[in-house]
Every structure is written in structure tokens, then in C-alpha cells.
Amino acid sequence: MALADTGKAIGAVTRLLRDRLHVHPGVTVNDVTVGKPEPPPNVTNPRLNLFLYEIQLDASLRNKSLDEGQPAPLWLVLKYLLTAFDEQGESDTIQAHEFLGEGMRALQELAFLPLSGSLTTLNALKDNPEVLKITFDEASADLLSKLMQGSEEKYRCSVAFQIRPVMIATSEPSSYSLLVGIDYLANEVIGEKGIQISVFPFGGPTLSAIAPPKFTPGDTITLRGSDLNLANLSVRLGTIELPITGQSSDTLQCLINGTISGGNVISAGSHPVSVIQTLPNGRKRASNLLVGNLLPLLTSVVPNNLARVNPGDPASKIYGNIDLTGELLGTDEDDVFVALYQNGSVVKLFDELATLTPQTHRRVPIKQENPIPAGKYRVILRVNGQQAKNSPEVDLVVP
């Protein structure tokens, strides 16, 4: 799973800093090292040294989660010292001070740290939703004295800076659960007749509510508001125009039609809904916006090429694929999560899916290095934060 690579994020940031400083055209030193600001013996090359002296939790992002129902990752602030050494390994000479200034200028130009380098570095940092920001800190004499105290350590003038926010995603399974108001045995929606939505009339074409607030391709939705019986009205979901099937002064009924279900023009997720009135002069007047939640439609889940890690052992864990079919199952650019649910909790979470047919046929790979126990699971699908109503059961067994 891609988020598992974020456990290497701290080392990846240090490697990225070292590599970017080393190739920066304004830095003339021969080497950039990592470690305590002390020169190794018999070193004759001028160099810059990076020392990670403190790691803090970013308090402003402490409870920020990547997806609703998923545990919040660790958001870190990494604090570094940058020290320069001349050819004799000294840090308090004119030449060392020149190198230190070059390093500061390079860091200032890299204020927003771009991702590059090895595959290990990219995998550890590419899922970080925030841009890595370099900020200079005060490097007081007290701070440097504390970091360099000791009988064999020398006080060295250095520059302090920090990088934030660095994400380390937790490996703890998410707390997704089955939807309330769904009879999964009969595959029916229940309980929504008891939902009451108050309607407050306003002057002009105005929307106040959508029923139901979550819908799938083929559903009919009802928009409530005022002045909805005017001529030349149309309804938009995002940039898509919906056909109107019923109209009165305070309601409009619209069909989530087949154009949407193809997935070529829109993906599942939360989209703005508005009523557009075409005026006699050809101009268009839009109502206020409401949010409509377009759900993916998961129709079937089928195991594919399952195998045991230890063939012949009936208790061995299994690996292979699960093929999903339906509508609006997401594209490679969408935020898609699939969870295997068993005995009241999520057993395994996947965030990397293969696309067989865009939006209608996707594959969940269960890798051999991360197998799961055999058994029956409910498959929970979320696309762009919206969870499919249907969670079919799949029996993952190997004959």
C-alpha cells in the first residue's frame, strides 16, 4: 500500500535536502554530509553538514485526517542545523562562512521543497497532501551550546531551519462502518421515509434542500425551494445538466441519467447543485448552491487468481485480486479507498487500485507480501469521500 512508504518520510526529507543542496548551482562545496556537526578525521574537502536535532508534532494539523473515518496520520516538523566546513575542517573561518552563506541562499530558493530523486524518496513523500515548506529559525548561542556541549565537541556557528509538514500515515485500520438505513441482506434502502427536511421559502428561484442528499446513477432527486415553477429552468450537477421530470412551485424532480453513469463527464463525490433560469435576453441566472453527493454504484465483487502463501496449508493466508464492477468506481486521478470488513471492523484497507475499464471495472490487488486470512468479507468502497450504498459480500477462499 502506497501510504505504508510514508514511514520512511523522515529519512527521505533528509536525503532530499542533501541531494538538492549538492546539485544547487550556487553551492560550490564538494560534499554535503549528514550527522553531528563534527568533521571526520583526514577530511580535506570543504563541505556543508545537515544535522537533524529535533522532531516535533505539528499542533495545527494534529487531528487532520486524509479521509473521514480514517485515523489521522502523524504530522511532523523536522528541525535541522546547517554547518559549513572549510578544507581544514574548520567552521569559523572566512571560507567556511562563505560556504554557509551559499547554503542559506540555496535553502531560501528552495522555500517550497520540490520532490525529486530516487524512487524510495518519491514513494515516501508523494502522498503528502501538503507542500514541504522550509522556514529559517533562530539559532541562538544557547541552542548551539546545548547541541554541541561535551569535552570533545566545539562550538560552531550554524544556521537553524525547519521543514513542515512531514506526514507519516498510520498503519492502523480505518474505522469505516456499514451505512445506517441499509438492509444488506435484502439490498434495500430503509428508514429514509422518516427523515423530515424543513423548507423555508425565499423570493426568487431559491433552493433549500435536496432529497435524497445522496444518490446514484438512475435515481430521481427532488429539489425543494421557492419559485421553482418558472419557465426556462434547468438543473445542473457540477457542469452536467440534469433532465427535469417534474415541476411545481416548490419542487423540481430530476433524473440522474445515463450520461452521468458512463463516468466520462463526472466522478462520484460531492458536487454543487443549482437551478439555472434562462432569461429572455439569453442570459442565465443561477440560484444559490447546494451540495449533492453522487455515490458510486458497486454491483458485484469477484475474487480472481487467489492463491495461498504456503500451498497445501489450509490455514495459510491468501493473495490475489478482487474485481469490482459497477458505475462511477473512480479513475486513477480520483481518491478511492476499498476496505475489507469482517466481524464489525475493517481488516484491510487498500488505496491503490488497477483500472480495467474506466469507472466500471476496477481491480483490488492483494499482494503476496501483504496477504490476508481466508474468509467472507464485506467490500466497502469510497470514491472521493462518498461510500457506495451496496457493500457486497465476497468469499475469499482457495479450493
Rank of each mutant, 00 (worst) to 15 (best):
L242R: 10
I210F: 01
N281K: 01
V398K: 09
N310I: 15
T93W: 02
D332K: 05
V347D: 04
L57M: 11
H24G: 00
V291D: 10
P272F: 01
N123E: 14
A139M: 10
P114F: 02
N288G: 05
A374H: 02
D395Y: 00
F200K: 11
L289Q: 11
G181D: 11
A96M: 07
R378C: 07
L242N: 04
S171N: 13
A209F: 01
I134C: 01
S60A: 12
I221H: 08
Q359W: 05
I94C: 01
P165W: 03
I168P: 03
L255S: 10
R224H: 08
A141W: 00
K64Y: 09
L119I: 14
L349H: 00
E54N: 14
I163S: 04
S198P: 11
P399A: 09
R105C: 00
T360S: 15
P399K: 04
L78G: 09
V13N: 05
A9R: 05
I94V: 13
P392A: 00
L125P: 02
K79I: 07
A339Q: 14
T121L: 04
G312I: 10
K389L: 13
H271V: 05
G262R: 14
V29T: 14
L356F: 00
F200A: 13
L237Q: 08
D395I: 01
I195W: 14
A315H: 09
K146G: 10
Q108S: 11
S175T: 13
D334A: 04
Y184Q: 09
M1D: 13
M148S: 09
L143W: 02
A2P: 15
V180F: 04
T6K: 04
L57Q: 13
P40S: 09
G218S: 06
I10M: 09
D334G: 01
Y319R: 07
S60K: 12
N49S: 15
I380A: 03
T220P: 00
